[in-house]
Amino acid sequence: MRADLLNDLNAERAARRAAILVTEIPSGEQRLVRAAEIAGDPLAGVLAKHLAAGKSGLVEAEGRPVFLTVQVPPVRLVVIGAVHISQALAAMVGTLDLALTVIDPRTAFATPERFPGIDLVAEWPDVALGQGVLALDRYCALAALTHDPKIDDPALSAALRAECFYVGALGSRKTHAARVGRLTEAGFPPEAIARIHAPIGLPLGAVSPAEIALSILAQIVAELRRAPKPEAS
């Protein structure tokens, strides 16, 4: 492998952008295809499929074996609201390999006692998400769970702008209708607002906080594995 290709691959990783290293076997001839360049690549179809699955693998290209090293940024779940459902989420995310960050400016809620071992940010979302504390991107899921527009709305706006692969918001249809009105007023087009899953979660008929947490995680997994996956800009 050429050292410059390795450096480029690592740079994409550091920037949280997906990329695929294409290696001819056994010659070792290589090229790096960034996510944004896939559409123009001769192997576009198979590259898109492997990127969607997030899996490396050996494929045939024009009768010759080619190995695809697929590099996808780790998925991050950002939860707004250190609430009861968030505590249930915290107990479940580990097994799914999701990195969890909980943001809540209410210091009575955002306590290490309530969230042991969890990345907790006791700040307003526009501070936490707007000043480089945590940069949202296409490999982030955001769930707004406070019921409080003062806290949820700035986070939802940031998630829509960052094109997070999943955006969900807790609240009834009536609550959401009011939210849609506010976001429209803030200048978001209908197709962007339609990306918000509300009421949040797959319709499991969930009742308890743990059941609602499960329905949210199930919906996130469904969005994550739905092809085509988030493609880099």
Binding site: L6, L9, N10, R13, V70, V72, P74
Partner: peptide
């Protein structure tokens, strides 16, 4: 998800 292997590439 692939962090371990890309840490290796960084090395």
């Amino acid at each position: 998800m692939l962090s371990t292997d890309t840490d290796i590439l960084a090395t």
